[in-house]
Design a protein around this nucleic acid. Structure first.
Lengths: 349, 349
DNA sequence: TTGATTAACGAAAACGATTTCGAAATGAAC
DNA sequence: GTTCATTTCGAAATCGTTTTCGTTAATCAA
């Protein structure tokens, strides 16, 4: 009933615990005969080393912590999948925690993970997080910390991101290339860096194309649980405020889908009357009618890359080398679908 | 840099490790004065008990394992969220593993978790799992194991499920009540119990209403990654095979959405020509056009209930009481939307 | 025969906390 | 002054491994 220990194996074979331990780990100073004996008995008794004891000695837990704002989310669950898959390949287990977009919870969870003595931490910040002491605490302990997607630029650690600004630029440029003359933007809340960058990309694309930037065309939404509703609301408001808008770049697919639904209900034709480009490429976006042109955000790859970087840093700590931080920028892609028109033939000068 | 230990606190205060430990845990045989001193120093040094050492002594890890077939999945990610939230409330951490619907992986992961000495395991089985030795291994060690959603009826442990059969019955009955005369069924693969039960519910509803059961109206799909495509394919095939079908009960929303898409493309009117009822109530189902009538499957609640049961059993183990197994059946609900007609006025006898 | 080398194993000290069992000191009671 | 109880603390064992450093016995060279 109780798990088998080294001592029990040792007693049964009338040898010492030391020898058993060494035999199982193929130390060169144990004879082949005893090694065979030990290994066989361990097998039949179904011996499994007690992880606590091993960790206590070796000061490694072979466990990492993962904190994300929201689990039920296509993008984030893809990230989780990428992380878990990669971690398992390297023999690491993943403890998952959800911050619920709350700074307080995030802070508490970091403490929990540190107490658990995880070997490293992966985190995507809560929207509300503006204070970074809990993060620098981790780094001060020489424990690797890698941030992904929602990051804090000011914290000195590795980061895995996409170039939100560039992606937003591409999205907006696509609207321009397909003939849109007056382009609105539904942006996210003020805090997460992503919203800011996407907004900046939108703005830059306009200016680079000699189109005026009009702040009244920028609508803010919190992108929380009811982002679908927010998309509908913003769309309704836009129809009242600006009849001349013929294109919208929307911060995230869920909001875009809300907007599409509203436009469908009001008889506004997409893309004939208004073109729409979203962000993230959720599965849903390919299914809705009209299907949504959007920016593909590689969640699985991001998870994979984040773990790989963390792994590298954990190895560096193990070898007592200094940790080398890295910024990894993943590629995004515009996925052309029905909610935007065909690209106009460009005139050749 | 290195984490603070009891010994360091003891040395600084010139008292023994024992006293420090006791002080922090409010043992009655330590004076208030030393307790105050110890607690204050622990606070300022930011002392965190070494989880390994504690676990090694107490033989508790305050950690549970969670194995699911697929993380990127609306239903399962909701379950994860429920589990993680509830676990955190009780001071437990969750190690998450994904079996990828593979029996082999599932088996290996159970071993991993046992080695890690988790206090309990939550699992939703892979479709391919037909051999239960890895599960009985867990139970043989007196380690609580709770299965949810995709379960093995034969294994003696607690289970949290919905009544798939009844839910399917309700779904089919709804189609009948709204006037459908010839009802098809897109079912899942043969193995997971859920598919079988949903099929049986469908069949029973037909028979109870004196409608013939026609096996040629039952289409099978694997419900894997391409279930959307499978939905389209099946819909196309159905249109060829049976022009007279006016209702379909579909195993899962993703397939249903594929079917709706296909029908939309082929100009088949929903619900006028064909009514559709899905299963799961993914968010997508409320957004697609026409929106999908479906069975709401409470993922978050299932996760919550599963952890609560596991917690109960972990307490029982702790108190050396025998484990009491329980079958928990959660309520499902029919969510009426646009893909099915209004219920006919029933004649009163 | 002596000294050096090698092969094979074990004793014991960690790792950091918890807990049992005493011990010392103080005070109270007689 | 003796006895007894109470308060306050610590020594030491323990959890299960890992790893260092011996120790023994055998082998070999000269």
């Amino acid at each position: 009933m109780k798990p088998v220990t080294l001592k029990e194996i040792a007693d049964q074979l009338n040898i010492s615990v030391t020898t058993v331990s060494k035999a199982l780990k193929d130390y060169p100073d144990i004879s082949k005969k005893t090694k065979a004996l030990v290994k066989e008995l361990a097998q039949t008794l179904n011996y499994k080393p007690n992880a606590f004891a091993v960790n206590l000695r070796t000061k490694e837990s072979k466990t990492i912590g993962l904190i994300i704002p929201e689990i039920v989310h296509h993008f984030f669950s893809s990230v989780i999948k990428g992380i878990v898959a990669q971690a398992e390949k390297k023999g690491y287990l993943v403890i998952i925690l959800q911050s619920n977009e709350s700074y307080e919870l995030e802070k508490k969870q970091i403490q929990l993970l540190l107490r658990q003595r995880v070997d490293g931490i992966l985190i995507s910040l809560a929207n509300g997080t503006a204070d970074y002491n809990h993060l620098t605490d981790v780094l001060a302990q020489d424990k690797p910390l890698v941030m992904f997607d929602k990051i804090a630029k000011l914290v000195k650690c590795s980061k895995v991101i996409i170039d939100d600004r560039k992606a937003a630029y591409v999205a907006t440029q696509h609207l321009i290339d397909t003939g849109c003359k007056r382009i609105a933007h539904f942006r996210g809340a003020l805090l997460p860096q992503n919203s800011i960058d996407r907004f900046l990309g939108y703005k830059k694309a306009l200016l680079d194309n000699n189109m005026p930037y009009d702040p009244s065309l920028v609508y803010i939404c919190q992108c929380g649980d009811q982002s679908f509703e927010e998309g509908k609301m913003n769309a309704r408001q836009l129809l009242k405020d600006h009849k001349d808008v013929d294109g919208i770049f929307i911060n995230t697919d869920m909001v875009a889908i809300g907007a599409i639904t509203e436009f469908n209900e009001q008889g506004v034709k997409i893309p004939e009357d208004i073109s729409i480009v979203g962000f993230s490429n959720w599965f849903m976006s390919s299914v809705i009618s009209p299907s949504l042109t959007t920016i593909d955000q590689p969640g699985y790859e991001m998870g994979k890359a984040a773990f790989k970087q963390l792994y590298k840093e954990m190895q560096q700590v193990k070898n007592k080398e200094p940790i080398v931080y890295k910024d990894i920028v993943l590629k995004t892609e515009l996925v052309k679908r029905q909610s935007s028109k065909e690209v106009l033939h460009k005139t050749i000068h």
